[in-house]
Amino acid sequence: MISVNGPGVLAYIDPGSGSLLLQVLIAGLLSGLFYLKSSFSQVRESLTRVFKRHA
């Protein structure tokens, strides 16, 4: 079974073992999506800059 770093001393609510497990399972997917999103906005930013200069 996955051994997950327990919540900090003051995280007093029940995080739910299933909820922690789900996050670990989809971690790769989520970082991927985030990476895509930030690259997307970077590309968009540079494109706008290029067009502004040539406007």
Binding site: M1, I2, S3, V4, N5, G6, G16, S17, G18, S19, L20, L21, L22, L25
Partner: peptide, 17 residues
Amino acid sequence: RLQATSANRHTRLAGQG
């Protein structure tokens, strides 16, 4: 789904580790 299955199975959570 995962909430249900985790509730039934023994999940080892390292408390402070």
